[in-house]
Amino acid sequence: MDLARILRFAAVITLLLALQALFASGLVNPYYIRVLILCCFSVMLAVSLNIIIGYAGQFSIGHAGFYAVGAYTAGAFTVYAGPPIRQALPLDRLPGWLEGTAFLMAAICVGTLFAALAGLAVGLPSLRLRGDYLAIATLGFGEMIRVVIQNVEAVGGPRGFSGIPIYSSFFWASLFAVAIVWIARNLARSRHGRALLAIREDETAASVLGVNVTKHKVAAFVLSSALAGCAGALYAHYEGYLEPRSFDFIRSIEIIIMVVIGGMGSTTGAVIAAVILTLIPELLRGLAEYRMVIYSALLVLFMLVRPQGLFGTWELSWETLRTRWEKRLERP
């Protein structure tokens, strides 16, 4: 690690900690904090889904399913494995916040791992399918996941899973949102990311250049699912309560809408669209029953006016800003 990167990392942590301290002080309306945290979850989901839809060009409508796997397995871990672990280890000597953090990190690992496994189990068979058929299959798997959860009494079944300890906070949600954006951006700049873009553009041409199409698709799918699972684990320990209905295919579609509106393949776009689309329903709250009508009408209008999304495939980075600046200078 070079110094610049360590400094940047420290700066981000400090900023997020400072914000956390501000929010904990009670000076900010808790409603705003909640909306901000919801934005973080949307960002995590949209950016992770963009890896499979935007980069690899594989249309998946089951993202909420992997989010659910992460949330439920992480929640089940702290609820069921938490007490025996506490008995076995002398955790009570730790300060409370450290104990919570340790459990949160373990739960995130569990949620991420199980979501990755689910991604592998779904991705291996279904990524042989293309286009609409893949979309339909992932929709089917996503709904299956939800139906299975609904039938597991240990996690509350259709009534919902309550009593999950609340360990998550603005700091963790925002930190992981930043981390996921960072991972997606790193991937895009590597040969593996370019292989995904090549697969999106033309599978045949990519394969004759030595890109193992199946392997890269499955890897992208697993990564995307794992990141959704990580988001799920954080969500479970933020809300403390999960219900199957909040992970149905409508939720998957909401995430897709964020990716498409942001411009498929653009992480910048996914972040901004995730924030905007989380804010709009909140901003329209005053309009009561007109809210969702306006939201859906806006969605259709947007697609008609700007089908390529907000950013197309454009990415915010020093490089693109510099190229744009240089082009401007070249022009007399």
């Binding site: 790193n186 991937l187 700049r189 593996h192 370019r194 873009l197 250049l209 890109v211 990564l223």
Partner: peptide
């Protein structure tokens, strides 16, 4: 993309933005 095979670099290093990956890039 054509240089995909010859440039090497692991997946993990790629997503974590490790030095190896950036140098290869």
């Amino acid at each position: 993309v054509g240089a995909h095979m010859v440039c090497g670099g692991s997946y993990l290093s790629a997503i974590l933005g490790g030095r190896q990956s950036r140098d290869l890039d």
